[in-house]
Design a protein around this nucleic acid. Structure first.
Length: 233
DNA sequence: AGCACA
């Protein structure tokens, strides 16, 4: 079937994903990257032989999915261009929501061992984001944690951003994926000894400011709206 | 290339 012939669906199907990325990191990064298009209900990724390198992102609305299909087509993600289509079928989580869900009958049994393998993999990862109930409300005006206190002066605008309140499992790849969308992006630096913070460098202060505005309050997990200030020089 | 959710 020509991908163009697949009717719009609130779920997108992504292939050509980098298979080396751990499943939980992949899901978190997809969540982070795609939540700019709207509320995400679920992210599904399996590492079984048949399903690795692919993922499904379930949006709350079809329009969000449509924008994502168009705008993120061929987006370089972990060094590989994403190939995005609409999913061919309705996701279980939306069927459950609209009452049409019927548990499909047993067809797989070799998947039990895939389950075990997944357990091990998850043991190395920290807590997964709860993508089912998560929402990214965009910049949160009420977020205060990163603002300087009364006695502490804010750094003047410059080309380096200081990011705080990141979930401890955040990797520099995840931040790279997020910040590289903005022109002038140079690099992400994280400090091994200080989880939860990062520095992101741009070519100049105009470009860093645009990224700051765009990603201020961005939630990598629902509990972690990121706080972005200019780095102290 | 490959369309699942347990």
């Amino acid at each position: 079937m020509l991908s163009a012939d697949i009717p719009p669906n609130q779920t997108i199907y992504i292939k050509n994903l980098n298979e080396k990325v751990k499943k939980e990191e992949l899901k978190r990064s997809l969540y982070a990257l795609f939540s700019q298009y709207g509320r995400i209900l679920d992210v599904v990724a399996l590492k079984t032989p048949k399903l690795r390198g692919q993922a499904w992102v379930v949006f709350g609305e079809v329009t969000a999915a449509s924008n994502a299909v168009r705008q993120m087509q061929n987006f370089p993600f972990y060094d590989k261009p994403m190939r995005i289509q609409y999913a061919k079928t309705k996701s279980d989580c939306v069927a459950k929501a609209d009452g049409t869900y019927v548990p499909r009958d047993k067809k797989k049994k070799q998947e039990e061992k895939a389950e075990r393998k997944r357990r091990d993999e998850e043991a190395q990862q920290s807590a997964a984001v709860n993508v089912t109930t998560a929402q990214n409300g965009g910049p949160t005006a009420s977020f205060r944690q990163g603002k300087p206190g009364a006695q502490e002066a804010a750094a003047a605008p410059n080309n380096i951003l200081f990011i705080q309140n990141l979930p401890h499992e955040t990797t520099s790849m995840m931040l790279h994926v997020l910040f590289q969308q903005y022109p002038g992006f140079r690099e992400v630096r994280m400090v091994e000894a200080k989880p939860g913070i990062a520095f992101v460098e741009f070519e100049d202060d105009v470009q860093s400011s645009i990224a700051m505005d765009a990603l201020q309050g961005f939630k990598i997990t629902p509990q972690n709206p990121m706080s972005i200030t200019y780095a102290k020089k």
